[in-house]
């Protein structure tokens, strides 16, 4: 190959790369699970970033310049919604001034609107704690919800980037095949967990419970978002003595101290479940997220010897 052709080839590659960079749909996700989902469907046609990591509480985040820059150039915003990001997303959207991702636009996707939400309070009484009026927003702990959101993500990507519509349709079809097969496997593996009683640190696991048929024995926080009082802890101990539970569950960003305290008092084991992509060393994508979740639940509640 001559020097000249090399040069031409190189410049052609650079041009291609930059044209490609231009065409990529920028996805700004509030939580890592939605960035991962967009990646599953959009592949190399999109570039997804997440505002939070699995180790951050998505209720609160620190303001960094890249968040505003990310919102400015985003074509599609994907968040859980239902009030989870109320503390910062409205501010961020206002600062970003990007009209493509404002409420009502195709670029504005609140995932929880597309699933059957649990725990929508009949009466919103402020004395009940930090309740979300629109129901429990932590929908990603049930993989069937992720399948529902996947369809909406694919629709929106087709709408925003019609040139690659076929590729998004194929991406969705491939994901749905693989995902539904995975759900069937997880459900088979998790069958022995049905009816097990669990204690929750915070009400983050309603969808996991309803999916796997777990029973919520109690929550460490008497009211969501309020630290437990002495009276509540005492009541919890009495209750768990009368009707023991199999496991105490928390998210990786929650303080392990309360659940460890309860383990010492009751002998019930505790575990941090990954909660979202990146929540543990194993949970590197959506598949391994549920692989790891089911494995931890089985290991702690159904030791291998009993299986």
């Amino acid at each position: 190959m001559t020097y000249q052709t090399m040069l031409k080839l190189c410049s052609a590659m650079v041009l291609l790369a930059s044209a490609h960079a231009q065409a990529v749909v920028q996805v700004f996700a509030c939580e890592p699970e939605w960035a991962a989902l967009a990646g599953e469907i959009g592949g190399s046609n999109i570039k997804a970033t997440s505002a939070t990591t699995a180790l951050q509480d998505p209720h609160y985040i620190q303001a960094r310049p890249s968040l505003i820059a990310g919102v400015r150039k985003a074509d599609l915003l994907i968040c859980s919604g239902s009030g989870l990001e109320d503390g910062w997303l409205p501010l961020l959207l206002r600062k970003g001034g990007n009209s493509n991702i404002q409420p009502g636009q195709a670029g504005y996707l609140m995932a929880s609107q597309y699933v059957n939400r649990l725990e929508i309070p009949a009466v919103l009484d402020r004395a009940q704690g930090d309740l979300h009026a629109q129901g429990n927003p932590h929908i990603q702990t049930d993989p069937r919800n992720i399948a529902l959101v996947a369809r909406v993500v694919a629709e929106r990507l087709q709408q925003l980037d019609p040139g690659h519509a076929a590729s998004y349709r194929e991406g969705l079809a491939a994901f749905e095949d693989k995902w539904n097969a995975a759900i069937a496997t997880w459900q088979r593996e998790a069958a022995p967990l049905r009816g097990k009683r669990v204690v929750l640190h915070h009400k983050s696991w309603a969808y996991l419970e309803s999916w796997l048929g777990l029973e919520e024995a109690a929550t460490l926080e008497a009211k969501p978002g309020v630290p437990p009082s002495a009276a509540h802890l005492n009541e919890l101990l009495v209750q768990l003595k009368a009707a023991p539970a199999a496991l105490i569950i928390r998210a990786p960003y929650q303080d392990p101290k309360p659940s460890e305290w309860l383990t010492k008092q009751t002998g019930i084991p505790n575990a941090a479940l990954p909660f979202t992509v990146g929540g543990s060393a194993e949970a590197t994508d959506l598949y391994s997220l549920f692989d790891a979740t089911i494995r931890i639940l089985l290991d702690t509640m159904e030791p291998a010897s009993d299986r």
């Binding site: 609160y60 503390g87 402020r126 004395a127 704690g129 930090d130 009211k223 969501p224 978002g225 309020v226 009082s229």
Partner: peptide, 11 residues
Amino acid sequence: ADNPHGGEHLK
């Protein structure tokens, strides 16, 4: 303790 919504104000 009785009014966690006030916590948002405090924050």
